[in-house]
């Protein structure tokens, strides 16, 4: 399967073309510029570099979230738009947090991807990485940063990744050798990780109209709690 990945969920705009055998091409830019202006030209250039067109692809994947509200919408809209013109493409949206774990697939232990949501709040997941692959241990969620890391399960080695990982390491685990920080080059979103997730489980494919973002809003219960504390 030949997959185009489109990643716009955070500061990184990234595209990749990947098959089961190899990563053919990948581009990523950490940028403040609007992803909507960057991502489609980037995809076209990347395909041209590989002497491919959309017709040659089998599938296309973007990040489902969590992440930037606007960024997620750009990625999903791009995929839906491309599929309109290339209806043979299988499409999927993959958890941003799961994809971050896929970049660290060689690691054995617990991976905790953590993205900054808003002051004091994080998007976080807990994944197990082993020879069997990447498996979610809990649902991705938005939660209180200090609370979550105060009760982090640490019976196995933990690796932190994501745009908030470095701050988490220095704030809560500065002297803890069993809590590791993902390497710089593998700590932020990249499109090849989305491709890897789709390739690992092609049954994720959905009808383009069912492609949806997972913004991870605070639950009703959390809002009620916050309200009662006001």
């Amino acid at each position: 399967m030949l997959i185009l990945g489109i990643e716009t969920s955070g500061k990184v705009a990234s595209c990749a073309v990947m098959s089961e055998e190899r990563l053919l091409a990948e581009n990523l830019v950490y940028t403040k510029l609007t992803h909507s202006q960057i991502i489609l030209p980037m995809a076209e250039e990347l395909l041209a570099d590989c002497s491919l067109t959309f017709k040659d692809l089998d599938g296309i994947v973007c990040a489902a979230g969590p992440g930037s509200y606007t960024g997620l919408r750009i990625g999903i809209a791009a995929v839906k738009g491309i599929v309109l013109g290339a209806p043979h493409l299988k499409c999927a949206a993959v958890s941003t947090l799961e994809a971050l774990c896929r970049e660290l697939a060689g690691f054995t232990g617990r991976i905790v991807p953590v993205l900054y949501a808003r002051p004091g709040k994080i998007y976080v997941g807990e994944y197990e990485s082993s020879a069997a692959g990447i498996r979610a241990l809990s649902e991705d969620r938005i939660t209180d940063e200090a609370e979550f890391f105060a009760s982090l399960e640490r019976s196995v080695p933990v690796m932190l990744t994501g745009d908030r990982a470095a701050e988490i390491k220095s704030l809560y685990f500065a002297n803890d050798a069993d809590v590791l920080l993902a390497p710089t080059a593998n700590r932020l979103q990249r499109a090849s990780a989305l491709c890897a997730a789709f390739l690992a489980d092609p049954s994720r494919a959905v009808d383009p109209e069912d492609l949806a973002a997972s913004y991870l809003q605070a639950t009703k219960a959390e809002k009620d709690k916050a309200h009662s504390e006001m």
Binding site: K32, S68, Y69, T70, G71, A117, R118, P119, Q217, A218
Partner: peptide
């Protein structure tokens, strides 16, 4: 509402610069 606020991109704009 919080949902309204999310759709303005308010949290995306919170940035160090």
């Amino acid at each position: 509402s919080d949902a309204d606020l999310e759709t303005t991109g308010f949290f995306d704009y919170m940035d160090e610069d």
